[in-house]
């Protein structure tokens, strides 16, 4: 299992900027938004949590279709499926590798992007907390979408259509947590919901992903 994680991370690094690509995309989103809505700091600060969450969603989506597609094409998915490791474990590790290469950098870099977006000073802590709690769910759900579309030649667009609706609860509670936290309101409900969704998703969705992979390899 650890060997698989190391292999995937190594592949991400060797493929050229596995870590950097998501961040660069995030930066572009954050750069473009002020062009669209105007440079007033007040407006930007107000929409900052939403924009940062949307950026995280899209950055995560970008690299999803490669999670299984590459392994499917070169045959290593077949070999992994016949290897003495449970497929549920394989998909969980794949999701973890995806999170380490896309979600984690976003969590770490969020303060910088918050700065660019005039995020309110009270919101930084909540922004980082929300991203840290929410992005693992994005990666695991994305793995499910990738598992559904692994055999398809043009799965990218379909993948977005399948995965984005699943992101709605995480997005709502994640953004709401930041908004409430910044205004010193009660954060219990969104915090617990966000963490609960992530925990439940990590516990259950890998079984669905593994089932989908098995069907696709048939």
């Amino acid at each position: 299992m650890i060997a698989l994680l190391l292999r995937d991370l190594r592949l991400a690094v060797r493929a050229g900027g596995g870590f950097g690509l998501g961040l660069a995309f995030f930066l572009i989103v954050v750069t473009l938004v002020p062009f669209g809505v105007g440079p007033e700091g007040q407006i930007l600060g107000r929409i900052a949590p939403g924009i940062l969450w949307l950026g995280a969603l899209l950055a995560c989506l970008l690299s999803l279709d490669r999670i299984f597609a590459l392994d499917f094409e070169d045959g290593s998915l077949d070999l992994l499926a016949t290897a003495p490791v449970p497929l549920e474990g394989v998909v969980t590790i794949k999701a973890l590798a995806h999170w380490i290469t896309t979600g984690l950098p976003l969590v770490v870099a969020a303060p910088v992007f918050g700065l660019l977006m005039h995020l309110e000073s009270t919101a930084y802590f909540w922004m980082i907390l929300a991203l840290a709690l929410g992005t693992p769910a994005l990666s695991v759900l994305g793995t499910f979408g990738a598992a559904l579309t692994v055999g398809l030649k043009r799965g990218g667009l379909l993948l977005s259509l399948l995965v984005l609706p699943l992101y709605v609860p995480t997005l709502i509670f994640g953004a709401e947590l930041v908004r409430r936290g910044a205004q010193n309101m009660d954060t219990n409900v969104p915090l617990l919901m966000l963490a609960g969704i992530t925990a439940a998703v990590i516990a259950v969705v890998p079984f669905a992903s593994a089932a989908a992979i098995r069907v696709n390899l048939r």
Partner: peptide
């Protein structure tokens, strides 16, 4: 198909399967 990762070295490819 052999399930090889083109960016990994020969030894790394083999080592991965040995660990699995």
């Amino acid at each position: 198909s052999d399930g090889l990762k083109s960016t990994l070295s020969v030894a790394e490819n083999l080592q991965f399967w040995a660990s699995v």
